[in-house]
Amino acid sequence: MFVAQLRNELLKLFARKRTYIGFGAFLFVQVAILLLLQLPKAKRAFQQLLESNGYGFEEYYSGLTLGLLIILFTVGMLGALYLALVSGDVVAKEVEEGTMRMILSRPVSRLRVLTVKFLACAIYSFVLLAFIGMTSLLAGVIYRGGLGKLFVYAPHEQLFALFDTREGLWRFVRGVGFMGISLQVVSTLAFMFSCFQMKPAAATILSLSVLFVDLVLRNIPYFAGFQQWFITYHTACWVRTFNDIVPWWSIVQSLIYLGALNLTFLVVGAMSFCSRDFKA
């Protein structure tokens, strides 16, 4: 029955119009970013960066490079918002609409209900991020007429790397996979708030507030020495997979940190959900 219940949870998520509006919104933003990247100023800065380091602009201004740039901007702008929106809804919305009481009148444990919901949420997050990865790459490839070579530049991570097509594509796919794992923490955070006695919108806003405060504090010079304490430092670990020599230990440390956070958020959410009263 577990599989059937999980399938139903996914059905509930994917049958909603809003789900596709979200996917549509991402497509729209991707196209908008692609257009913005064509502005002479943006193109010139890019060209200057490559040519001042002795590389050809045409060679590296490719489908792969544009695809990765689109992902960076799209996920930065909308990714956390949308993950928090969906995960913040998943329990709180059902409580608000009365369907949770219908479920809890069944001979099923609260922990089972929560586990199924969390898994559905995690699958949804991966599907969404995979969708963003694929469509970003597709947009870049269509615009440039092929994959080309990959150029990655991330000053925050002190990253400047170039790859040929084969290695670039592999790095791209692997990077998107790690992004899916690391951004799971956003879903889990919103899921935890969703388990508390609050409106769905409050769960989303609270999650985004936590991430926003984390990001702002992280960028204050005073906290430069405390980078490893911030969630957003670790969620960016996927970018490090594009280093020439991948700092695996640093990435594993980030994933352990995020895993511990995920577990904590889940336990706290489950404790709240399993001990609260459900009443009309």
């Binding site: 509930k12 049958a15 909603r16 119009k17 609409e97 009365g98 369907t99 009481r101 219908m102 009309a280």
Partner: peptide
């Protein structure tokens, strides 16, 4: 069943 039973309206 409850006074105002909740359903997934979109299904």
């Amino acid at each position: 069943i409850f006074e105002t039973p909740g359903f997934y309206d979109y299904l």
